[in-house]
Design a protein around this nucleic acid. Structure first.
Lengths: 256, 256
DNA sequence: ACAAAAGTGTTAACATTACACCCATGA
DNA sequence: TCATGGGTGTAATGTTAACACTTTTGT
C-alpha cells in the first residue's frame, strides 16, 4: 500500500518557505522527533516510510517540538498528523545526536537547488538532536496524510528497508531491538494484532519481530501460559482441516 | 565522602554571567545532558549529587552540548569535567522533555535574586530537553571538581536520595531501572567493582542494585556458571573463618 | 479415507530453589 | 573445639525443547 501526491518544484519551494516562516517562532530549536511506525500485515513486520520531496529517497516520519508542548505529546501529534490515528502505543527508545548525523549530501543538495545557498543560521542548517519513538499501529486503521516535504507513503518489510536519509537506518535497527525486548517483557503484541486472531497469526508476528521460527506446539503453550489470552469461538475458513480457535488479548499487560 | 567549596554571592553572580557570555556561542540551544553517576561502596549503591549554588538542594551533574560535539562525547566530557575520570562506562537511557520540567520556583527564585529579572529570551529561560546518561564508576578513582554553580559534591545512598531539583528524582528512578536490566543482560557489574573481590562483595552489589536479598549459595553458583569470573588466590583477612576466594571479571562481557 | 493444520501429551534436558552439609580459619 | 563465614551436594520444583500423537475439517 502506498499513498502518492504529485507536487511541483514551485509548490515545494513555497511550502518549505512557508514552513520556515512559522517554524522559528513555533518550535524549540535544535530538537527533532523521529518515529518508527511498525505495522503487521501479510505475516510481515512493516515500517511506514515517507519519500522525501523530489528525491527517490525515503525517510522516517518526523517533526518538531512545539515550544509549549511536552515531548511525548509532540510525538503523539506527529503520529496523528501523519497517520490520522489517536491513542497510539508509543515508546521513546533512543536519542540520536552525532554532530554530522543530518549532514547528508542529497538533502542539502536538494535544499540548495530549491532555495539557493542558505545562510549559516538558517533553520535547516541547525544541528539537530533527534528524540526517537517507535509506534505500534493496526495498519488497517492508518490513513497517511502527505504534506509539503513528503510526497509518498509506503509500508516497507522490515527485511527490505531501503537506504534511508540521515542516520535513519541505524534508528530503525535500534527500534527493532527495542521492540524485541518489549514484546518479551511488556507483551506489547496486542498493539499490532487485530482484535481477534488465530494462534498461527500471533506466531507469525513473533517470528517477524524476532526474525526466526518458533516451534508451533511450544509457542502455543507458552502464549497460553502467560494468561493474557482468551479463547473465543472457532474460525471456520472452509479449508479442509481443523478450524483454529480465535484468541483475544484479555487485559492490557501494560496496565498494572 | 563530600567535597565542599565556599563561594560568595558575588563570585557566583560573576561566574554565572561569565558562563552565559560563553554559552550562547558555544552550546546547542535547548539541549542539556544529565548524568546519574553510580558508585558502590560500604556495600551500598551510591549516586553522586551536586549541591546547587547557595541553596540546600541537590541536583544531578549535567552540562550542555557543544555545537561541534557528538552527544555521547558531550556526556563523556561532562563526566570528565566533574569526576576527573576518563574511559567511563556510559549508557544513554532516557530523554526528558516535559515542557515545565525546569520551571522550579527554587532555581528561578535564586536566579532572580542574583541576576534580577531575566529577559524572556535569556539563556536560562530556555525550554530545555535533557538527554540522560548513567555512568558506572569505581568511586575510589573519582576526584570531583566543583565549579561555579555547584558548591558541594556528595555520594548519596540510592535508598536515601533527597528531593532533587527539577525532575531529577524521576530520572534517578529510571536510571536505576535501566541499571537493573543491564546488570542482568549486559553483566555490567565489572564497572562497579574493584579489580578483585570476594563473592560476598559481588552479592552485596547485586542486592544493592535489585534492592532485595539473594540466597548466598545459589548466587555463587549462578555467577560462576556465567563464565565471566576467574577465581584467584584466597584472601586471608585474619578473621576466624574460612578465607574466601578472590574473583576477577575475565573478559568484558560487553565486547562481543 | 486422506491431507492438512490445530491441538494435546510426554519425556529429557536444563534451570531454579531451598536447604543440608562439609570445610577452613583464628581465637 | 567452637563460632563463623565460605564452598559444595542434592532433591524438589519449574521451565524449555523436541517430537509423537490425536483431533477436526473439507474434499
Amino acid at each position: 500500500m502506498s499513498y502518492l501526491k504529485q507536487i511541483s518544484d514551485k509548490e515545494l519551494k513555497e511550502g518549505i518557505e512557508h514552513f520556515i516562516q512559522e517554524a522559528k517562532g513555533k518550535y524549540v530549536p535544535s530538537v527533532t522527533l523521529d518515529t518508527v511506525i511498525f505495522g503487521f500485515h501479510d505475516n510481515k513486520l512493516k515500517v511506514l516510510l515517507l519519500r522525501f520531496a523530489q528525491t527517490a529517497h525515503f525517510i522516517l516520519p518526523g517533526g518538531y517540538l512545539s515550544k509549549d508542548e511536552d515531548l511525548d505529546m509532540a510525538a503523539l501529534r506527529v503520529l496523528r498528523e501523519r497517520t490520522g490515528l489517536d491513542n497510539i502505543f508509543l515508546e521513546q527508545f533512543y536519542t540520536s545526536g552525532k554532530k554530522n548525523r543530518t549532514s547528508n549530501s542529497i538533502v542539502s543538495q536538494l535544499m540548495k537547488d530549491l532555495l539557493g545557498n542558505l545562510p549559516a543560521d538558517h533553520w535547516f542548517n541547525q544541528r539537530f538532536v533527534s528524540v526517537c519513538y517507535y509506534a505500534l499501529v493496526d495498519d488497517t486503521k492508518v490513513n497517511p496524510k502527505p504534506e509539503p516535504f513528503f510526497t509518498e507513503f509506503k509500508w516497507f518489510d522490515i527485511e527490505a528497508i531501503p537506504v534511508l536519509l540521515y542516520d535513519h537506518n541505524l534508528i530503525v535497527e535500534k527500534a527493532l531491538k527495542r521492540l524485541q525486548t518489549d514484546l518479551d517483557t511488556k507483551l506489547v503484541g496486542s498493539k499490532l494484532m487485530r482484535d481477534s486472531f488465530t494462534m498461527n497469526e500471533l506466531q507469525k508476528l513473533y517470528e517477524a519481530v524476532f526474525q526466526h521460527p518458533f516451534v508451533r506446539t511450544n509457542f502455543q503453550r507458552k502464549m497460553l501460559s502467560l494468561g493474557i489470552l482468551e479463547r473465543l469461538e472457532k474460525q471456520y475458513t472452509g479449508k479442509s482441516h481443523k478450524a483454529p480457535y480465535l484468541y483475544r488479548f484479555t487485559k492490557d499487560p501494560l496496565e498494572d
